[in-house]
Computed example of a mutant assay.
Amino acid sequence: MPDHPDYAALTRGQVAVLDRVNSGDAGLSVLQQVVRLAEETLGARGAGFAEYAKDHGRIIAATGACAPAIGRRMDHPGDRLLDRRTLLVPLDSVNDEFARLIEGGDLRHMLGARCEHGSAIVGSLHVYFDAHVGEPGPEHHAVLELLAALAGQLYGLGAGLPAHGEPAPDEVRRQADRDLWVAVTSHELRTPVTVIKGYADTLTNHWDALGEPGRHEAVRVIGTRAGELARLVDRLLSAASEEDGSVGASPAGPFDLVEALREAVAALPGDLRQRLLLTHMPGDLPKAYGNRDSIATILTELATNAEKYSEPDTTVEVCAGTDDDTLRFRVADRGVGIAPQHVEQAFDRYWQADSGHHRAGAGLGLYLVRRLVERQNGWVSLRPREGGGTVAEVRLPRA
């Protein structure tokens, strides 16, 4: 960390952010730019922004060594930043959400600043420093406070922030859920049921005329569509059980993540399975800790989502890896990609994207993935893929 912030970088960065705001560009991608500016200006190893809801926070933007924490749910900070604008914390004195995710290096300090919009604290901006650098001085506090204020101003523009809006009143939400449930169920169930019935009728009425190849093809289609129908029913029932907390409630324990992923891939429908490319699946990973049975559901949803938003002749890549605290696996496609302002909305219940001829379907898959993963003390995130497409990343605790 330099003795003084890089004021030239600060000025250039602020101008760049204001140019984007003045041109009508705002939201999560601009917030990410502010986080990156904090890291660069203060000479930090990494930086992150946590957005606060009523009872919890979520890391929605992070750069540098903190990037793996994007998507992580965290406890609400309580009153730690209520009586001060910035706070310097020695990392050996706190079980810090970001610090445990730094890959390499020896961190010594976290400097945080609260971000306000009006009278509300909407989030906090954090930067992390290595042990070999000195303690941040008053100028570093002042610059971080300035950038936190800039981040807070983004919340007043009404363009994609907060990433997680305030929940609707209970009765309004219940009625909306009932209406959507009817619409989603009727729409999503109709296609596989219609196809299964059509092919079954064809087999009944034209058995001899179809010949052996035709009968085999009809049975194959019925089997494929029946599998889709079963997965859809599981999703709908799982979403319906949100209130009783039964989703993902199976006992947790150590398991082999790569082995679970390979078994999940083998159980996928043939057409989807053939599109998957297992690029990096090391056999010497430590054990993950969680619910092994959930991996099949999680991978199926992520792979199906990737297939839906990419062309038939492209591959969907699956890889796995580890760091000091977590195991991860990624599902990456070369599809239409996800807009930065949608990377958090995509996990909302019933949220649907419209990207040309691609449709998001019921809007339950990613919602259920996040719930399943977070019940195992893990987290999941989406991000645009360099060169086009989307990367979904799941992180689970090490056993």
Rank of each mutant, 00 (worst) to 15 (best):
D177K: 08
G158L: 07
L203C: 04
H164E: 13
E212T: 13
R190M: 11
V172F: 02
D201T: 11
Q175P: 02
V172D: 08
H187I: 06
A149W: 00
L154I: 05
Y155G: 02
Q175E: 15
A200G: 12
D170K: 11
T194N: 09
L210T: 02
K197P: 00
H187E: 15
K197A: 15
Y199W: 05
A148I: 09
V172K: 12
E171D: 15
L146N: 07
V182F: 08
D201Q: 10
G198W: 00
A163P: 02
R173M: 14
P169G: 09
E166C: 06
A176Y: 00
A151Y: 00
T191P: 01
A200M: 10
V182E: 08
E188G: 07
V182S: 09
H164P: 01
L161A: 04
T204F: 10
A151K: 02
Y155E: 05
L161S: 02
A149C: 08
R174A: 14
G198T: 04
G211D: 08
V195E: 05
G211V: 13
G158W: 03
W181F: 15
Y199P: 02
T204Y: 06
K197T: 12
P192Y: 04
V193T: 14
L157K: 05
G152D: 03
T191N: 11
L180H: 06
T202G: 04
W207F: 15
E145M: 03
A142T: 05
G198D: 02
T202R: 10
L157C: 06
T185R: 10
R174P: 04
T191I: 11
A209Q: 14
